[in-house]
Amino acid sequence: MGVLGYTILTLAVLGIVAAAVLYFVASKFRVEEDPRIDDVEKMLPGANCGGCGFAGCRGMADALVKRDDISALYCPVGGAECMKGISEYLGKVAAERQPMVAVVRCNGTCENRPKTNTFDGAKSCAVIAALYAGETGCSFGCLGCGDCVAACEFGALSMNPETGLPEVDIDKCTACGKCVSACPKGIIELRKKWPKGRMVYVSCMNKDKGAVARKSCTAACIGCMKCQKVCEFGAIEVANNLAFIDSNKCKLCRKCVEQCPTGAIVEKNFPPRKVVTAPKEEAPKAAPKAEVSAEPKQEA
């Protein structure tokens, strides 16, 4: 037996001893855990986004298994399908919620809402919001530093450099609500998700009186009540000079969109209108705006 033999022997003995120690320690300090937690965790999407209110999917799985009544728990990322699967597996009744999507309620693009001053400091909406109203005359609107974009773990939000506003990718958005809490101005709202991503909403949070709001932003809601009057479903309510469309009552008839004098009510992802009069009104409005937005860009 040479050096080689001794080496192999020593290593083998060491390995056996270590294995034995590990075995005894593992069996002694073993934590009994419901194996279903592992299964449920696997059924969850595994995004660990915290949209459910727990620190991660494991926490959610733990709660789903241990609680008798799980109607208060919901995974916005997995959605109804995922919750259905889990409820069947656990034999409990899971909550049913309709799918939601995030919308940015501000239309204060560079040309709608001109800058009145320049902020020179840390690029963070939270920092700006703690200091003052923001770079524009509107103290309610988007600050444009992208705290929401940074908060989104699904890459569903992105800053549009032309408008200076964040945009939601409806297909990627899971409605986890991270952006809603990240926005210091509270302009992001979770709304009911319609098929094909269609939506109608008030893209403004300005609570100033009409004239003041209009002065700071041409696309501001001025609280004129026209939309509230035209709505047949009672989905629109104007309070504090600001309209709000309840997405649960709204039927997407789009009458309010036509009525809104400032274009604060926005429709998205609809096919072009068939009525002859409407596009005429819309088209010239939209076209010069696009030109205006392009011009200063070139100069700069």
Binding site: G121, V127, A130
Partner: peptide, 8 residues
Amino acid sequence: PLLDWLKL
């Protein structure tokens, strides 16, 4: 901008 972040 240390103080900006510190204040936050």
